[in-house]
């Protein structure tokens, strides 16, 4: 098991956002957590990268090691990378500098030229806008930059937070296609949290359904996409 989350509880002051959520991801899988706005999806990802503290009984294991109390930057070193909600690129760094932040502390280990070539193949616009400040990019370009910033370090698992939010439908399709390719062709393990259930279920192996901070359903994506309740609640069919 690459990532194993046990009994995850997350509270903000008095309010509990996530109640005893457990899930796991195998190496090479593409897994989705789908749920409505406010179901606690982003909280779960933030707990995985160590930006939000989790409750006492909770534990997170990565490659068999307990990382529950590890600070954020050390989890990044271990190969957990995130594409944050709304991209959150560094606005006053250039596109190229944003990419370099992705391999902070790893420059000796990574073949930068080869990685850049590979990434520019997916996202040619990043090469064109190399020297531009990232706040001048469009929303879709910022999302591409955020994906590239996470991928440049050759992560063991890629966490993707609400990537469809604020993107044009056409771009949503393209971004999910790229995520699917990254998983199938390059074997990158991916965890997606999404409101856009249909788009993410289509490319996933497995999925969990999150409602009000609890997992209410799980299974193969191909099965869930046929499920009547899912179709009514999330697909609007």
């Amino acid at each position: 098991m690459l990532l194993q989350v046990n009994d995850l509880n997350i509270s903000y002051k008095e309010v509990r956002a996530v109640h005893g959520v457990s899930f796991s991801i195998e190496e090479g899988e593409l897994v989705s957590i789908i749920g409505a706005n406010g179901a606690g999806k982003t909280s779960i990802l933030n707990a995985l990268i160590g930006l939000v503290p989790c409750g006492r009984q909770s534990s997170i294991f990565f490659s068999g090691k307990d990382i529950t109390s590890l600070p954020s930057h050390e989890r990044a070193r271990k190969g957990i990378r995130i594409v944050p909600e709304r991209a959150r690129v560094f606005p006053r760094l250039t596109v190229y500098e944003n990419l370099l932040t992705g391999i902070y502390g790893l420059r000796a280990k990574v073949d930068l030229k080869e990685r850049l070539e590979w990434l520019y193949g997916f996202f040619p616009v990043l090469e064109e806008r190399r020297e531009q400040y990232s706040h001048t990019l469009s929303g879709g370009e910022q999302q591409q930059l955020a994906i590239a910033r996470a991928l440049i370090s050759e992560p063991k698992v890629l966490l993707v937070d609400e990537i469809s939010m604020g993107l044009m439908p056409l771009l949503v399709e393209k971004v999910f296609e790229i995520l699917g390719d990254l998983n199938r062709k390059f074997g990158i393990t991916i965890l997606i949290v999404e409101q856009n259930a249909l788009a993410s279920l289509r490319i996933s192996n497995r999925a969990y359904v999150l409602e009000a901070g609890r997992i209410v359903m799980k299974g193969n994506a191909s099965m869930l996409i046929q499920d009547k309740r899912i179709r009514e609640a999330y697909l609007g069919i």
Partner: peptide, 8 residues
């Protein structure tokens, strides 16, 4: 926060 998530 994001800086720490890239390993800084």
């Amino acid at each position: 926060d994001i800086a720490s998530s890239v390993g800084i």
